[in-house]
Write a protein that binds this DNA or RNA. Structure first.
Lengths: 126, 126
DNA sequence: GCTAAATAACGGAGGAGGTCCAATAGTGGA
DNA sequence: TCCACTATTGGACCTCCTCCGTTATTTAGC
């Protein structure tokens, strides 16, 4: 069995692209490509950058959900940029994400407590 | 927009059923239905128990992956029970899960650091 | 005896979300 | 002219998860 292909390798922490994007948008409105760059700069995605197409799809979905709104950025050089802004709902969503992430953290702590009760070594593993 | 249907509500922390099941199996070998009961007893799944069918499917998948092995429990009353045991690979997988979960936790901490830099209030939300 | 509920396991359809690959398009430099 | 970088998007595909239903055995209640 190839553990590097297993979920235990930590390849997929699903859906955290969403809060990450929302978080970055609080720094200031910007466009998808720049968001990608910023995401790659985060320690979270240091060794495994999120899929480009995926990020754009997340942005599109979030716009349909009303969490962000976009408009083509006028002027400027290079290809047209779609500029994203957090909406009121997006900020509310982000507020909930904070609680949710804290919930995740405590859930993970709960699991780890089962896995290593003494806080050091693994249980029942010789 | 219904935030209760949004990922920000924390309904889905994907794939943590796997480490949870592996963790429970370190407590002792048992069968799917009992694992379900134990999962429901965990704080993680207190308000949203994992799907029954889903748990059986995870078990089946993990058996195909060689993380657990099963056999029909002989004797005993009631419907036939499929008894699951952790394999050597399962224990190795669990060991990796510990590191992965710790990684997840630090990633979440990293995101939370962006979301609430001062550690108290939300950023740019007024 | 019959029915309901609890125990126990599983299958199929469908959807959400993610990845891989590819296409399109403008701009600037060699 | 060709290439690299910037910027966005589409389609095929896959995986996982959920929802719903089915089968079967045992026990409890009427």
């Amino acid at each position: 069995m190839d553990f590097n292909q297993c979920a235990c390798s930590g390849k997929n922490l699903a859906r955290l692209v969403r809060p990450a994007v929302l978080a970055l948008l609080t720094r200031g409105e910007t466009h998808g490509y720049d968001l990608m760059q910023q995401l790659c700069g985060l320690a979270i995605y240091a060794d495994a950058p999120p899929d480009t197409s995926g990020v754009y799809k997340v942005l599109k979905t979030m716009e349909q959900e009303g969490l962000v709104s976009s408009s083509w950025e006028p002027g400027g050089s290079g290809p047209a940029k779609r500029r994203y802004v957090l909406t009121r709902d997006g900020r509310e969503c982000l507020r909930r994400w904070i609680e949710t992430l804290e919930g995740y953290r405590s859930q993970i702590n709960g699991l780890l407590a089962i896995l290593r009760p003494d806080g050091k070594s693994s249980p029942s593993i010789g």
